[in-house]
Design a protein around this nucleic acid. Structure first.
Length: 821
RNA sequence: GCCCCCGUAGCCCAAUCCGGCAGUGGCGAGCCACUUAAAAUGGCUGAGUUGUGGGUUCGAAUCCCACCGGGGGCACCA
C-alpha cells in the first residue's frame, strides 16, 4: 500500500497560515477550561539582539522555552509569552559607519528578518506585545526611570578611571574588553579618567544578596553562586591609623592580626597617596603613578607579578602596638575597594608577605597555626590558630580574638565592625550614539538640570555614516544643533548631556513593559504588572548570570522602594539553556565549524530541529551538533505521522487495557518530567509510546478506541515540542483545525489514576545481593508470603547450595534479598 | 591559588533526588526483510571493572572520603 509521505515542509506551509488566522497565543483571554480556572503565567525568553538572522543558539533557547509556554497553555493557564528586541547597541552603530547609513536601518531590517524566522519556527509568541528598546516610545520611559533614580540619589556623576581604546578613540564597556584588549580592534586597553554616570547599585548590595534565598531551588545554583561571588560580601572591621596627624581608616577582614601589621599601604592611584606623601618623596611617587597608569589591565591583574611600590616617607601609628610603621604606595592595593588603604600583615597575608620580602620589611607572626615561619618559608599562614605576640589577646583562638578586638576598638574608639562589598557602582555612561540619551542639561548658572518629564523623550539627532565615527567624544557632542539648548530651570543657554546609557539599562525593565506595552502614562500600567509579574519562568543563557540578571533584580528593588511594584524579585524561576557547539568547539567562522540554522531548517524542517535541540540532552547542557541527529528526528516524526494515518482509519469502539495503561503511564510520567524540566527524557517517552502503539496497530489489535485516544494524547503532548507534525496528526485523526479545533487550542490529557495501578509486579530475588530469580506477584502481597515464595524458589535453593540463611531482607513487593550465613 | 559542577556501551543520553534487575530513547556498527538494485522503511543483534581506590550497608552507578580526568566561576577585593 502506498503510504502518505511525511513532508515536513508541506506540513509547515499547510498549518502556518491557518494558525495566523486562529490567533492562538494571545495572552489575557484564557477561557479557564481546565480545573484551577485561568491562573496567569508569565513565560519569558531573554529578548534577542537584532544581529542578522536567528542562529542555532536561538533555536535552542526559544525552542526550550516554547515547550514550557505551550505546556502551561495546554494545562489551562493564561500564559503570556511576549517577544521584543534589545535593539540599541554598538554593532548597529558600526554597521551604520561601514554602510554609510543610520543605525536604525540595519536594526529594524534585522528585526523584521528575525520576526519572520520566529514565526516560521512556530514559537507561541503573543505578537501584540512586541516592543523595541530603540523606539522613542520605549526609551522615553528608560529616560523617565533614569530621572526617578536620579531624584532618589541612585544616579550620579563622578570622575572615574574607565576603559579606553587608543585605537578607536573611545570608551569601552567592561564587556567589550576581552583579556585586556579591545574586542573590536584588538588594541591594548588603558585607563582614562573621565566624569561618568553611575547607578548606585552598591546601596542594594545587601538586599541583592539576602533575597537570593527566595530564588534558591528555582534558579540554577551556579548562577546564585556567581552572583554571590560578584557581590562579594566581606565581614571585618574598620580600623583607624594616625598618619602625620591625619586619621586614615582601613578595612580588614582580619582584625585579629592587628598586632602583626608592620607596614601600611595606600593605593598608588588614589588621591590619598598624594595627600600623605612627604614633600621629598613627591617626585618618586609621581614617577611611580605614571608607571602604574601606563600598565594595561592584563599586566596589572597578573597575580604572579613582582610587587612594586614607593615609600611615602611618612609613618602610621599602629593603634594597638603604639609603633610607627612605614607607609607605602603600591598598585597591589585597589583604590576603589574598601578605603583604598590597608594595614599590611605580612605573616598572614600572601600579598603583604610578597611585598615585605621585596622591600625588606619585618614579618611578625601573631597567629600560631603550627605551620613554618612565613619569614623563612615565604608562605603566609592564613588558617586558624592561636593568637601570640598580641598582648592581652595571647592564647585566644582566632575567631574569639576577632570579636574581642572589634569590641575593644568600639569601646575605646579607633575602630568598629564593618561590612564591605566587592560590588562596584554600575557605570552606565557610554560615549556612543545608538542608545538612550541621558536626559540631563548642563547649565552654567544652574548646573545639572533634569529634562522635564513633559519634554521626554530626548530624541536622538539624525546622525548617520561618518558622523558616527569615534573621535574620542560622543558623536552626540558634534551635533551642535542638538547639543545647544536652553536651561529648563533659568531659560539661559545650556548644553545637553552627550552620553547615552548602557544598553543593559534598557533590558533592566523590558519585562515590566511587556505587561502593558502601549501604556502612555508611565513605564508600565501598575494594574497590568500586578496581574502578570513576577515572571513565572525565565529562560536564557548563563552568560547573563551576573550583569543582566543582577541589574534587573536591582531595578525591581528600586521600583519596589518607589512603590511602583509590590514584589522584590522579577524572575521567580530561571532556566539556563546550554550552548550549541560543533565538533567540541564553539562555532566560529575562523574554525569553519559553523552550523547555519536556516540550512538545517531547509534540510530537516522546523519540527525536526526543535525536537533535536530538546532531545539532545538536559536543557542546561551544551549540545554538540556533531553528536545529534536531526535526520533521526525526521524519521521519528514521520513514524508518528504514519501511525496517525493508520489509526485515523480505524473504526470501532474496542478498548485494550494494556494500551490504555501504556498511554496513562506516559501521560503521567511526561507531565511530571515537564514540571521537572527534564525535557530530553520526555522525548524518549514519546518514542517508547509511539513504538508500543505501532506494535498494537501492527498486531491488528481491535482496540480502535484505545489506539485513537492514545494517538490523540500523544499529539497533544507532542504539540509542545513539534507543533506542525502534531497538528498534522491531530488533523489526520479527524479534527477540523481550520474551524478552530487545533491541537494548540486543546487541553492536556489526564491520566486515569486507576490505570496507573499495576495488577502484577515483578519481584527481584537476590542471594547475597546477586540476582537469582524473578517472581510475578500482586502489588499488595504480604511480606511473609513474599518471603516464603522467595525461599521456596528453586533458583534460590540452588544458589544457597545448602548454606543456612542468616537474614532475609524483604522490601515488598519489589525485592527480596536472601543472605546466607 | 580559592570555589562550584560533571565522569554510565564507540558517541549522545536514561537509571542518581529518596541505595534494591545497569537500559527504556537516539546516533553509529552489524545482520535480516521488502526491492531487479539502491535509497527509504520495518525488524533484529551485539556492546559495560558505572573514571580509580577505599568506606558505610544485607545490598552502592546512587551515600561518605581520597585521588585522577573534564568543564565552569572568581582571582592583588585586604
Amino acid at each position: 500500500m502506498e503510504r502518505a509521505a511525511y513532508d515536513p515542509h508541506a506540513v509547515q506551509e499547510r498549518w502556518l497560515p491557518v494558525w495566523d488566522r486562529l490567533d492562538l497565543y494571545r495572552a489575557g483571554r484564557a477561557d479557564g477550561n481546565v480545573e484551577g480556572g485561568a491562573a496567569k503565567k508569565y513565560v519569558l525568553d531573554m529578548f534577542p539582539y537584532p544581529s542578522g538572522d536567528l542562529h542555532m543558539g536561538h533555536a535552542e533557547a526559544y525552542g526550550l522555552c516554547d515547550v514550557l509556554a505551550r505546556y502551561w497553555m495546554r494545562r489551562g493557564f493564561d500564559v503570556m509569552h511576549p517577544i521584543g528586541w534589545d535593539s540599541f547597541g554598538l554593532p548597529a552603530e558600526n554597521a551604520a559607519i561601514r554602510r554609510d547609513e543610520h543605525p536604525a536601518t540595519y536594526t529594524y531590517a534585522n528585526i523584521e528578518t528575525q520576526a519572520e524566522s520566529f514565526r516560521r519556527y512556530a514559537i507561541s509568541f503573543d505578537w501584540t506585545r512586541r516592543l523595541h528598546t530603540s523606539d522613542p516610545d520605549y526609551y522615553r520611559w528608560t529616560q523617565w526611570l533614569f530621572l526617578r533614580f536620579r531624584e532618589r540619589g541612585l544616579a550620579y556623576r563622578k570622575s572615574s578611571a574607565v576603559n579606553w581604546c587608543p585605537q578607536d578613540q573611545t570608551v569601552l564597556a567592561n564587556e567589550q574588553v576581552v583579556q585586556g584588549a579591545c574586542e573590536r580592534c584588538g588594541a591594548q586597553v588603558t585607563k582614562r579618567e573621565l566624569t561618568q554616570w553611575f547607578f548606585r547599585v552598591t546601596e542594594y548590595a545587601d538586599r541583592l544578596l539576602a533575597d537570593m534565598e527566595q530564588l534558591r531551588g528555582h534558579w540554577p545554583e551556579r548562577v546564585l553562586l556567581m552572583q554571590k561571588n560578584w557581590i562579594g560580601k566581606s565581614l571585618g572591621a574598620h580600623v583607624d591609623f594616625e598618619v602625620s596627624g591625619q586619621t586614615v581608616t582601613v578595612f580588614t577582614t582580619r582584625p585579629d592580626t592587628l598586632y602583626g601589621a608592620t607596614f601600611f599601604v595606600v593605593a598608588a592611584d588614589a588621591p590619598l597617596a598624594l595627600e600623605l606623601c612627604a614633600p621629598e618623596r613627591r617626585a618618586a611617587l609621581e614617577a611611580y603613578r605614571d608607571q602604574v597608569r601606563r600598565l594595561s589591565d592584563i599586566d596589572r591583574q597578573a597575580t604572579d607579578r613582582e610587587k612594586t611600590g614607593v615609600d611615602l616617607g611618612v609613618t602610621a601609628l599602629n593603634p594597638v602596638t603604639g609603633k610607627q610603621i612605614p607607609v607605602y604606595a603600591a598598585d597591589y592595593v585597589l583604590a576603589d575597594y574598601g578605603t583604598g588603604a590597608i594595614m599590611a600583615v605580612p605573616a598572614h597575608d600572601q600579598r603583604d608577605l610578597d611585598f615585605a620580602r621585596a622591600f625588606g620589611l619585618p614579618v611578625r607572626v601573631v597567629i600560631d597555626t603550627g605551620a613554618a615561619d612565613p619569614a623563612e618559608s615565604g608562605v603566609a599562614t592564613t588558617g586558624d590558630g592561636v593568637v601570640v605576640n598580641s598582648g592581652p589577646y595571647d592564647g585566644l583562638p582566632k575567631d574569639e580574638a576577632i570579636s574581642r578586638i572589634v569590641t575593644d576598638l568600639e569601646t575605646r574608639g579607633g575602630g568598629k565592625g564593618a561590612v564591605n562589598f566587592r560590588l562596584r557602582d554600575w557605570l552606565i555612561s557610554r560615549q556612543r550614539f545608538w542608545g538612550p540619551p541621558i536626559p540631563v542639561v548642563h547649565c552654567g548658572a544652574c548646573g545639572e538640570v533634569a529634562v522635564p518629564e513633559s519634554e521626554l523623550p530626548v530624541r536622538l539627532p539624525d546622525l548617520r555614516g561618518a558622523a558616527l565615527k569615534p573621535v574620542g567624544t560622543s558623536p552626540l557632542g558634534a551635533a551642535t544643533d542638538w547639543v545647544n539648548t536652553t536651561c529648563p530651570s533659568c531659560g539661559g543657554a545650556a548644553t545637553r548631556d552627550t552620553d547615552t546609557m548602557d544598553t543593559f539599562v534598557d533590558s533592566s525593565w523590558y519585562f515590566l513593559r511587556f505587561c502593558s506595552p502601549d501604556y502612555q502614562d508611565g513605564p508600565f500600567d501598575p494594574a497590568a504588572v500586578r496581574e502578570w509579574m513576577p515572571v513565572a519562568q525565565y529562560v536564557g543563557g548563563v552568560e547573563h548570570a551576573i550583569l543582566h540578571l543582577l541589574y534587573s533584580r536591582f531595578f525591581t528593588k528600586v521600583l519596589q522602594d518607589m512603590g511602583m511594584v509590590d514584589f522584590p524579585e522579577p524572575f521567580l524561576a530561571l532556566m539556563n539553556q546550554g550552548q550549541v557547539i560543533n565538533q567540541g568547539k564553539a562555532m566560529s567562522k575562523s574554525l569553519g565549524n559553523g552550523v547555519d540554522l536556516g540550512a538545517e531548517l531547509s534540510r530537516f524542517g522546523v519540527d525536526a530541529v526543535r525536537l533535536t535541540v530538546v532531545f539532545a540532552g538536559p536543557p542546561e547542557d551544551d549540545i554538540d551538533w556533531a553528536d545529534v541527529s536531526p535526520a533521526g528526528s525526521v524519521k521519528y516524526l514521520a513514524r508518528v505521522a504514519r501511525l496517525a494515518e493508520d489509526v485515523g482509519g480505524l473504526a470501532g469502539a474496542g478498548r485494550d487495557a494494556s494500551v490504555d495503561r501504556a498511554v496513562a503511564r506516559t501521560v503521567d510520567e511526561v507531565t511530571r518530567l515537564i514540571e521537572a524540566q527534564r525535557l530530553n527524557v520526555v522525548v524518549a517517552r514519546f518514542m517508547e509510546l509511539t513504538s508500543s502503539l505501532r506494535k498494537a496497530v501492527d498486531a491488528a489489535n481491535p482496540a480502535a478506541a484505545s489506539l485513537r485516544d492514545g494517538v490523540e494524547a500523544l499529539a497533544v503532548m507532542l504539540g509542545c515540542f513539534a507543533p506542525y507534525t502534531a497538528e498534522e496528526v491531530w488533523s489526520r485523526l479527524g479534527h477540523d483545525v481550520e474551524a478552530g479545533d487545533s491541537v494548540h487550542a486543546t487541553t492536556w490529557p489526564v491520566a486515569d489514576p486507576a490505570l496507573l495501578i499495576e495488577d502484577t509486579v515483578t519481584c527481584v530475588v537476590q542471594v547475597a545481593g546477586k540476582l537469582r530469580d524473578r517472581l510475578v506477584v500482586p502489588p499488595d502481597i504480604a511480606e511473609d508470603d513474599l518471603r516464603a515464595l522467595a525461599l521456596a524458589s528453586d533458583a534460590v535453593i540452588a544458589a544457597l547450595d545448602g548454606r543456612d540463611v542468616k537474614l532475609v531482607v524483604v522490601r515488598a513487593p519489589k525485592l527480596v534479598n536472601v543472605v546466607p550465613a
